[in-house]
Design a protein around this nucleic acid. Structure first.
Lengths: 216, 216
DNA sequence: TACATTAAAGTTGTATACATGTTCTTCTTG
DNA sequence: CAAGAAGAACATGTATACAACTTTAATGTA
């Protein structure tokens, strides 16, 4: 019963279980209100209860499930209202990240951003949404990292993960990709020039646009 | 060897261990770079390794420790730069929380806020920092809750917990308390009147002032 | 002495066993 | 038949046992 067709990232069973259940919640396989039974999950994945418990305790801190003492863990999930809120929160925080990044970003990070921009242009022409989504994630992650704030990065990574859910549903819609590409380019230019306020403004516009058209 | 002089909140050993280690990191007993040995902690607390492991895995997600596979978990701690960043992030997010709260707050929550304001006045006159700190936490938490956004509340609770560390150090300094009291009152008035922009502005001023003078 | 090899101690990763608490079924009783 | 009690089935909470991996100490050799 190996539902776990993972690659090589077998760091530990705990993290495998964590990702598996997380994906299950994000994809809606486990719905809000469902009880997650430890032994059932353990059998499903062919592992013991120990790593399952550790993973569930982590998911509790991610706020994706609620652990009720001596009762079990119940799925909380992410509603569309949550997604809306997350975009508003991102609006505040990614603006801040871009602002800080423009002051603290290193040359190597700028180089990688430039590479990403070039690749994005290519994949936009080819309508390759899968690769575009991957590059988009990396683009934003470089900016989180360049902002050089542990707390901010921690929050933004969490928000991005939660939002994957919304992305998943509308991935292949290519209507907005050319516009999105231009937005990324503007952000990059501002970062390169060290224009903090401009970087912030462009990032905010990008998030807002992405919220209205979540396809990329 | 029962270093755990807890009250009644013995929901589970895992959460007891979690709070114990968390406090240890916040108080500086476990310093950045220290390795946390599972068996050592287990003996220290008179429990088995199972709840210790679960607690450590949770602390990893809180970003207070780093789990290195097959090596152990190392303390990350919170630097003063982190604290500065957190205040800036709170500036963005508590403003948003106050904004949303002013539109969504319920009468019972407003009543409780009014009670808190009255109590704060009392304790400010008495210079009772301990109770003031408690009320301050509740004041902000009511606003998080009233904002009615799961994600926002989750982030702000996390930020507040991280910042307790900075508060701990300078608790008894009463110089700012009268001013802080006035700020809380202004926020409350704006919330009561449903003035979203005003609530946001007052909250931002309050956070900024608290950052310069973290005693309350 | 310096260095590689190997044994040993220590630590983490995982599974299992048992204790405790909860839920559901069934049987009794009014 | 309804309501409640007893017990079985089930799930979680915790401890322990064992396997795998890492680091350290020890041993042997050039």
């Amino acid at each position: 019963m190996d539902n776990l067709h993972e690659t090589q990232d077998n760091r530990s069973l705990t993290s495998r279980v964590f990702k598996y259940v997380r994906l299950g919640i994000i994809e809606g396989r486990y719905k809000s209100g469902d009880y997650l039974i430890e032994t059932r999950l353990a059998n499903e994945l062919g592992v013991s209860r120990t790593p399952v418990r550790e993973a569930l305790r982590q998911l509790e801190l991610e706020d994706l499930v609620e652990c009720i003492p001596n009762r079990g863990v119940v799925v909380k999930g992410i509603s569309s209202e949550d997604i809306d809120d997350i975009y508003t929160i991102r609006l505040q925080l990614e603006g801040l990240a871009a602002y800080w990044a423009s002051q603290r970003i290193k040359q190597t990070q700028l180089n990688r951003l430039e590479e990403i921009i070039e690749l994005m242009e290519l994949y936009t022409r080819r309508n390759d949404s899968t690769n575009l989504a991957r590059l988009d994630t990396e683009f934003h992650e470089i900016i989180f990292t360049a902002a050089n704030s542990r707390s901010l990065k921690h929050i933004l990574v969490w928000l991005h993960q939660n939002i994957q859910y919304a992305r998943q549903s509308s991935l292949m819609s290519p209507s907005r990709t050319p516009k999105s590409f231009e937005e990324h380019k503007l952000i990059f230019t501002a970062l390169e020039a060290g224009e903090a306020d401009l970087a912030k403004t462009y990032m905010e516009k990008h998030i807002t646009a992405a919220h209205s058209h979540p396809e990329e």
